[in-house]
């Protein structure tokens, strides 16, 4: 029984990681139909930001707190740069964007290798985040997992509120729903795009900081994440965040269950088969935005 609850929490925490790495993508893909394969490298940039900050800020707790906003800005700035230099020239060709950003991701990985070396680097986590909360019945819940869950939910909440309540959010929603109409209504769509890209990439930076608590920090860390992140967005449906949220947790629990009942390798394949089957049922993802635009 303890194991089962443990597994349920494992599934939820896998979901939280998926959500965190996919959230920024859901935003940029939803708004601009742009597949950014360098998103994984923005996550990597966030992780390395934590590492670099720890060289000067020795307190593990403080450096983590500082790393969150700094990584958001660093990754966000990289995103804006990418948007200005390449992506905005390619809005009409989403598939080409995929290949171009793949090229960018290759270069960023090699850059990381040249700056930080190919072996992984280490960061120190604050002691409190390496412990756990003991529940009755021998069940323990790891603090770093709780932290990531909280961070993911906070990011979703902040993003939702921003989209609902702020003028910028209203502009973003307008562009997502009907770009041309938004443009003729006087919204500077290209400026909105750039802001969206900043926020979406910045979220990748946040994810990178969080992932230093869980996994390796190295030049190739992004490549392992990007496909999972895209599957979440594709299955969740574009244009709305709730699809990604639901799908992230659903896939997390599915994977944890599969891992427990079979093996980790088989579980990965099960998740993939489930996704193909799901897309048979809803080819546009869980939620689709109904618009009048013909395309």
């Amino acid at each position: 029984m303890t194991v089962l609850f443990g597994q349920l929490f494992t599934g939820i925490s896998i979901g939280a990681v998926l959500l965190l790495i996919a959230l920024g993508l859901a935003l940029t893909f939803g708004q601009m139909n742009v597949i950014n394969m360098a998103h994984g490298e923005f996550i990597m940039a966030g992780a390395y930001t934590t590492y670099v900050l720890q060289q000067s800020i020795t307190g593990a707790g403080l450096s983590l707190v500082v790393a969150l906003p700094v990584a958001f800005v660093v990754a966000g700035a990289m995103g804006v740069l990418l948007e200005i230099l390449l992506i905005r020239r390619l809005y009409a060709r989403p598939l080409d964007t995929l290949l171009v950003t793949w090229g960018v991701s290759l270069m960023l990985q090699q850059l990381a290798r040249d700056i930080f070396g190919s072996p992984n680097v280490q960061t120190r986590a604050p002691e409190i985040l390496t412990g756990n909360v003991a529940l009755p019945g021998g069940l323990t819940i790891a603090n770093n997992r709780l932290f990531i869950l909280a961070l993911a939910l906070a990011a979703v909440a902040a993003l939702t509120l921003a989209l609902r309540l702020t003028p910028l959010g209203r502009r973003i929603r307008a562009v997502v729903q009907n770009r041309d109409l938004a443009a003729v209504s006087g919204i500077a769509t290209s400026r909105v795009d750039r802001t969206t890209f900043f926020v979406g990439s910045g979220l990748a930076g946040l994810a990178g900081v969080a992932l230093t608590l869980l996994g390796p920090i190295g030049p190739t860390m992004g490549t392992n994440l990007i496909i999972d992140a895209f599957l979440v967005v594709v299955v969740g449906g574009i244009g709305q965040l709730k699809g990604s949220v639901i799908v992230a947790f659903a896939l997390g629990v599915l994977q944890a269950t599969g891992e427990y009942l079979t093996t980790l390798s088989v579980a990965k394949v099960i998740v993939f088969v489930a996704i193909v089957a799901f897309l048979q049922w809803r080819p546009q993802g869980l939620f689709t935005l109904r618009t009048r635009s013909l395309a």
Binding site: T2, G6, F9, N224, Y260, T263, L264
Partner: peptide, 20 residues
């Protein structure tokens, strides 16, 4: 006895099983 796919970085399940 458990195996993780090469490059896998998600060990929640395995550690859960090891622990129990």
């Amino acid at each position: 006895e458990d195996y993780a796919p090469l490059g896998s970085t998600e060990f929640g399940t395995i550690v859960n099983k090891v622990k129990s």
